[in-house]
Design a protein around this nucleic acid. Structure first.
Lengths: 142, 142
DNA sequence: ACAATGCCTATCAAATTATTAGGGATTAAT
DNA sequence: ATTAATCCCTAATAATTTGATAGGCATTGT
């Protein structure tokens, strides 16, 4: 279980945008990529996803770039995560309601209940923090 | 973020063993694989890992098989998970204490604090449930 | 006009995950 | 003692996912 670079890079990019939010000027892909040390081409694909999910807007042409589509306090880590990595699904059986799948296997339901609880807990944390929260959070060690 | 088959199959196998715990007879790999519909060869590798981490013991030779090494109430989902998938590490920067890594990148610390919190929350849930808990848990829908 | 930008798709490379294969070693039952 | 059932171990391979690169198009401020 780990967060792939999509989610990690994406959150960093969004925090970068959030930290420029008061400028009200578009931030270029290349400047984000440079600051965050992320491959520009790859980041571009992530930005497209974020745009598709209406978390950022873009301005084309010279002097263009990206902007958060809402204030940092109105975008949660969960919004970002799910835009890039899709919904948190720890095991297929959690979302497939057909009881013939999984639950007819002895004991599978017992594991399923764990994955369900874990999934809820993860969603709770992801939804609890906004970009604004994270930027002003006291940094924590370890 | 998803649980790979190692963790999922492994937990099922452990719950299978837990449900035979009172028999006090070794349970064969092939019977677990059959009940849980898991490739026998693959499950074997998982059992080796579980054994290495002292969650199961094995009896070789005919009539042999596997047994939980402790009562189901003394083995947590986290024990099983970590034996198979290693520690939960959502992002390298969470465990690398060198502040030159990651935190010198603007905003990275802000994301790090999220991954830290999320990781703690996951560990808490995984450590909160024992095999016995899961077996007697009321099944939950969706 | 042109340079700076975002938009989009396809492809490739690398890493990880899942599976299969095959030969050993041990032991209960006969 | 032989045999069948079982765990032990390693290597090889297949499949999938992830990360990155490439290249051309569209838009727009200067």
């Amino acid at each position: 279980m780990n967060i792939s670079t999509k989610g990690r890079y994406g959150l960093r990019a969004m925090l970068d945008l959030a930290s420029h939010y008061q400028d009200e000027k578009p931030v270029t892909l290349s400047s984000i990529a440079k600051r965050q040390r992320i491959s520009e081409g790859y980041l571009e694909q992530l930005m497209m996803l974020l745009k598709k999910h209406h978390l950022v807007t873009s301005v084309r042409g010279a002097q263009g770039g990206y902007l958060l589509s809402r204030p940092p306090a109105e975008i949660t880590a969960g919004d970002v995560y799910r835009s890039l990595e899709g919904p948190v699904i720890l095991a297929d059986c959690v979302v497939i309601s057909d009881p013939l799948y999984g639950c007819n296997i002895i004991n599978t339901c017992a594991s399923r209940s764990l994955w369900c609880r874990l999934q809820s807990s993860i969603d709770e944390v992801l939804n609890a923090y906004t970009l604004a929260d994270l930027l002003k959070d006291p940094k924590i060690d370890q």
